[in-house]
Design a protein around this nucleic acid. Structure first.
Lengths: 195, 195
DNA sequence: GAATTTTTTTAGTTTCCACTACATAAGCAT
DNA sequence: ATGCTTATGTAGTGGAAACTAAAAAAATTC
C-alpha cells in the first residue's frame, strides 16, 4: 500500500504553539489565522490534523493537563494533607504568574462565558476543573483514613474550598496580581484547614 | 430651539436588558444582534445612545455595580470584620447561583481572556474587581483600629484572600456549582480569619 | 403650517470569521 | 517510472461580525 506524503510539521510542537494562543486569548478569542500563524501551518493542514477549531482546542487542553497534571499529583503526594494543600496553593501562586506564559489557569481563563456555539467547550472546561477537585477530595479522603484529618472533616467540602481558592488565584493572576500577593492568598487559605 | 424627535425607548430599561446578555455571554460573546434584539431597538438607536459596543458595556457595568454594590456596602457595614466577611461570602454564595440571572459575578465571568481589541474591557473589569478588594481592605483597616483584628493582621492580604475566595466562588458558580456547595466554601473560608 | 432638530427605519457597508475545493507536491509500493 | 495515497499551498466560500449612510418620522419652536 502507498503511504502518502508525510506530514511536514510536528504535531506536538504545533499543539504547544496553539496552546499558548488559546491560553492567552481563550477559546473564542483565539482566531484561526492567529492559530495557523503561531503553528506555522496553513488552514488545510490544521483541519486535516485536528478536525476543526474545537478539536484543536481539546487536543491543546490534553497537552496542557499533561504538562500541569504532573505537578498536581506531585503536590498531592506530600505526606500530610496539610502539606499537600500547601504545595498545591504555593505552586498555583507561583506558576500562574510566571513571565513567559499566560497568567492564570487555562481551565479557568479560556472560557467562563461566551456564545451558544462554544457551550460544549465551557462544559468541557468545567468538567476538567471538577476532575481536579475530585483528585483533591480523594487526597482528603485518604488523609481522613490515615488519621491525618479529624473524623468530622468533610473531604468534599474541603476539596471545593481548596479548588475555589485556586480558581480565585487564577482570576487574580489573570488580572495582574503579583507572585507575592498570590503567595499571601495561599498562606491565608491554609489557615482554614482543620489541621 | 427645536427639540427633535424623542427617544422611543427607556435607556435604563434597555441597559438592563443588555446587562443580562453581557452577563450571560461575556463582552466578546455578546453579539450586537443579540443585544439589539434583547433591548428591542435597532443598531442606529444603540449607537446614537451609547456610542458603540464598548460604551454600552461600560454603561451596563455601571448599572451592574449600582445593583450589586449596595449589598456589598451593606455586608461591610456589619459590626465586626468577621461578620462582615461572613455576610459577604454568604451573599456571594447565594446570589451567584440564583435562578433567573446568570451564574457567577459578571466582573469575573464577562472577560478574563479574549482578543487584543477587547483588552481595554478586561482592564476595566480587573480594575473594578480591584476596587472591590480595596473596599474590603478598608473595612479590615477599620477593624484593626477598633481592636477587632489583632495588631499583626495584614488588611491588604486579608482582603486579597477574601476577594480570591469570592472570585473562586464565581468560577464555581459559572461552572454549575449548587448553592449548598458554595455555602460550604464560604463557611470553610471563614475559618482562616484571625478572629 | 413651515423650519429645525433628533430619533427611527431600512438597507446596506467592510471586514473578519471558521472552513474548504482544488490542484500540486511528496512520499510509498509495484 | 507508474500508480496510489496523503499532505500542502492557493485561493477562495458563505456567513456573521461591528458599524453606518440616507431617508422617513416625530417631536419642538417660530
Amino acid at each position: 500500500m502507498a503511504m502518502g506524503r508525510p506530514r511536514a510539521f510536528d504535531v506536538d510542537q504545533a499543539l504547544d504553539k496553539a496552546l499558548i494562543v488559546f491560553w492567552e486569548k481563550g477559546y473564542e478569542g483565539a482566531s484561526l489565522s492567529e492559530l495557523t500563524a503561531a503553528m506555522g501551518i496553513k488552514p488545510p493542514s490544521l483541519y486535516a490534523a485536528f478536525g476543526n477549531k474545537e478539536g484543536l482546542f481539546r487536543r491543546a487542553l490534553d497537552r496542557y493537563e499533561e504538562m500541569k497534571g504532573g505537578s498536581m499529583d506531585e503536590a498531592l503526594a506530600a505526606p500530610t494533607a496539610r502539606e499537600a494543600v500547601q504545595r498545591l496553593l504555593c505552586h498555583a501562586a507561583s506558576s500562574q504568574c510566571e513571565k513567559g506564559s499566560p497568567h492564570g489557569c487555562m481551565l479557568v481563563t479560556a472560557g467562563l462565558s461566551g456564545g451558544e456555539e462554544s457551550s460544549a467547550i465551557r462544559e468541557e472546561l468545567a468538567q476538567r476543573r471538577q476532575a481536579g477537585c475530585a483528585k483533591i477530595r480523594k487526597r482528603f479522603e485518604r488523609a481522613k483514613k490515615e488519621g491525618d484529618l479529624p473524623e468530622d472533616a468533610d473531604p468534599a467540602a474541603l476539596a471545593r474550598y481548596v479548588t475555589a481558592v485556586m480558581n480565585g488565584i487564577s482570576v487574580q493572576a489573570a488580572g495582574g496580581a503579583t507572585k507575592k500577593e498570590l503567595q499571601q492568598v495561599a498562606d491565608m487559605a491554609l489557615k482554614a484547614l482543620p489541621v
